[in-house]
């Protein structure tokens, strides 16, 4: 059986095509201001990679904040459920799932079958989402890709006072003026973010293995700050954490096919 999952997020739209429990096609385009176009773009990419057509797919699951724009979807998949299934798919030992996307963050406690036990969400405030790190990278004048490696060079602990992206931008600028090393500032940024996300995770309970999904999982500096914050041995991150929700949506589509 072939199913597909499409995750239309605030920043990126991703499609995954799943054939008998294996990913055979993937597509990703930035969402921009035309969600429908982004959905079509990522879907076409994935079809091409899989070498199939729409008619070969039994069921399509749509998820993400722009799920209403996914007209090709047969079913709407709850994003929490999608994350739970995806974490279980990548790491069967997963019990706590953290998803940090551009505009939202979620923590899900899951059972051994990838079932949702409990969850908490942070939305509508950029301080608790990937947007925070992006804005801070701009203030620091480094690329988003550089942020993580920079942060890993530092072992300083500098607390950040501001809890709002807008105010934190000024704080970062003052740190630069005070000649604080960029690596130390970068670590302070990731630590601040990890402490907010960590508090959300503790509301569902921290149980290993901890899995991180979402685009911010690509940032090794954040993953390390998060690991320290949660005081765990390691955080499992799949190769392409950003595709988590799309994979989950494809799995749920298969369950319901």
């Amino acid at each position: 059986m072939i199913t597909a999952g499409i995750d239309c997020g605030a920043k990126n739209t991703r499609t995954v095509i799943l054939k008998e429990g294996e990913v055979v096609g993937k597509g990703m385009v930035s969402t921009g201001f035309d969600q429908e176009k982004a959905v079509k773009g990522s879907f076409d990419q994935a079809l091409k990679m899989a070498g199939i057509t729409r008619d070969d797919i039994e069921k399509i699951g749509g998820t993400g904040s722009g799920r209403n724009a996914i007209s090709v979807a047969d079913i709407e998949v709850n994003d929490i459920k999608a994350l739970a299934r995806a974490a279980n798919f990548f790491f069967p030992g997963a019990r706590t799932v953290v998803d940090v996307g551009a505009e939202e963050a979620r923590a899900v406690k899951i059972g051994d079958k990838g079932n949702v036990v409990n969850f908490a969400v942070n939305e509508k405030c950029a301080a608790g989402a990937g947007a925070f790190i992006e804005a801070m990278a701009r203030a620091l004048e480094v690329s988003l890709e550089e942020m993580g490696p920079l942060s890993l060079q530092s072992d300083k602990q500098i607390p950040m006072n501001a809890q709002c992206v807008i105010f934190a931008e000024s704080e970062v600028v003052s740190m630069i003026h005070a000649r604080t090393a960029k690596s130390d500032i970068s670590k302070a940024i990731h630590d601040a973010m990890a402490s907010r996300i960590g508090a959300m995770i503790r509301r569902v309970g921290v149980k290993e293995e901890v899995v991180m999904l979402g685009g911010v999982g690509h940032n090794p500096g954040f993953v390390e700050s998060m690991r320290r914050e949660l005081k765990v041995e390691k955080i499992c991150v799949p190769e392409e954490p950003g595709f988590g929700a799309a994979v989950g949506a494809a799995i749920v589509a298969a369950e319901q096919a």
Binding site: A107, N118, F119, N161, R196, A199, M200, R203, V204, G205
Partner: peptide
Amino acid sequence: RKKIKYECGPCKPAS
């Protein structure tokens, strides 16, 4: 004061 949502989080479990 600027982070009580987070500080109080553990006393307010999701379930």
